[in-house]
Amino acid sequence: MSLRRSCAERISARRRIRLEKKLLQLASVCDKANRGYQKVNNMLADSAFFGMFLTLACYQAGVLVKKKVKVALATPLLVAVVLIIGILLVFHIDYAAYENGAKYISYFLTPATVSLAIPLYRRLALLKEHPAAIFGGIAAGVLTAMIGIFLMSLAFGLNHEQYVTLLPKSVTTAIGMGVSDKMGGIPALTVVSISVTGVFGTVSAEAICKLFRIREPIAKGLAIGTSAHALGTSKALEIGEVEGAMSSLSIVVAGIMTVLAVQVFARFL
């Protein structure tokens, strides 16, 4: 009895030693892999083009996905962002390594926003035809946005940072990001809320117009552009030429009005 047990113990001891050896080996392999990761991470962090490469490659993939999949949510921007975050997480690449190269792309945001004046200028003749309807409608929309977001933020008990992050969620990304950044919000979350708004507005534009019995093409375009910015404008262009033109006009007009309105409304919460 005792002999058998000691035999078993000896065997189990030998097994344990073997197991420990294996574990040690595994640990050293892990360590090597870890050091490898760190090396790759350091290399990528030093690389000037990794971030830019990943951005453009994933955007290209997003464009392909959009062509194949006819889903409103599959915009190239969202697909690219999901892909990049996935790649960074799976390969344990630091966000800083990505940002090091990607930040150069963002430098072009200011001149690109300045260039938004050109499409607005091209539509200026339209603005002169119906100034009251255009300014009145868009101003009413912007005011609705401010009051609606304020009341709902109050209801949800959001803090100032969260409230200011959401305030510019209906305007085009370039303008909204600047507002959020300047007022103390989180620009990345503003981009998310702008995307959610744009996708939802695009999908349900026709249903909402029907619900509110908005039938005039000019009114339709203004409504879509003011509420769902550039994403909605692509939908408005599908509905009709007048709708598209009005929608693209209201992107910038609503953007400028929102910048001014936020100066007042940001103080409320």
Binding site: T144, G148, T197, R215, L222, A223
Partner: peptide
């Protein structure tokens, strides 16, 4: 907030300009 206000903004802008 994004969904609800988008419906409201679209409705109000459209009705007022119409």
């Amino acid at each position: 907030i994004c969904v609800v206000t988008t419906v409201l903004i679209m409705g109000v802008t459209g009705r007022v300009s119409q």
